[in-house]
């Protein structure tokens, strides 16, 4: 669990806006993993499985009529008081329209290329490029600075 727990938690954070739902998704993903009969060729394959299943679980929850209310970021994660930049960046990412958040996280944090993100999220590679470009622009407007610096 330790290998993918943080990644699943981060994906939950960017989609699900309260702790209870986030925990539901987190547990759903690991229960699915335990019950899954999938045979993974390697660690990358396994990681991709976790990403896909987490994103799908988040989407299912967001579609659900019973999803809970949205809470502020401070209630979602424990942020040290001095980490104001972390808070600012996370808030900027979370304020992006939902379609941008996966690609931002997968590209900037997990280091996936547009082609790989396309395969993971079942999106056309050109769509991923567009999403990345637009999200960079939006983030630059909010956070300032160079896009890849």
């Amino acid at each position: 669990m330790d290998r993918y727990a943080d990644m699943v938690r981060r994906l939950c954070l960017i989609h699900v806006k309260n702790l209870a739902d986030s925990e539901d998704v987190f547990q759903t993903v690991f229960v699915k993993y335990v019950l899954s009969s999938a045979v993974f060729e390697n660690e990358e394959h396994e990681k991709a499985w976790f990403i896909r299943v987490t994103i799908n679980a988040c989407r299912d929850l967001l579609r659900s009529f019973f999803r809970s209310r949205t809470v502020p970021l401070e209630e979602l994660i424990d942020l040290p008081a001095e980490e104001s930049d972390t808070k600012e960046v996370l808030e900027a990412v979370l304020k992006l329209p939902e379609k941008y958040r996966d690609v931002v996280y997968l590209h900037y944090f997990e280091g996936y290329t547009a082609l790989e993100i396309g395969q993971l999220t079942k999106k056309n590679v050109n769509t991923v490029y567009s999403l990345l470009t637009r999200s960079k622009k939006l983030l630059r407007e909010k956070l300032g600075g160079d896009e890849d610096a």
Binding site: A5, R10, D85, V89, L90, Y108, F109, L139, E147, A149
Partner: peptide, 15 residues
């Protein structure tokens, strides 16, 4: 921006 996003998400862990 890449570094800021990386360090921001690096601070998020599964409790």
């Amino acid at each position: 921006m890449r570094n800021r996003i990386q360090s921001a998400f690096a601070g998020v862990h599964a409790e």
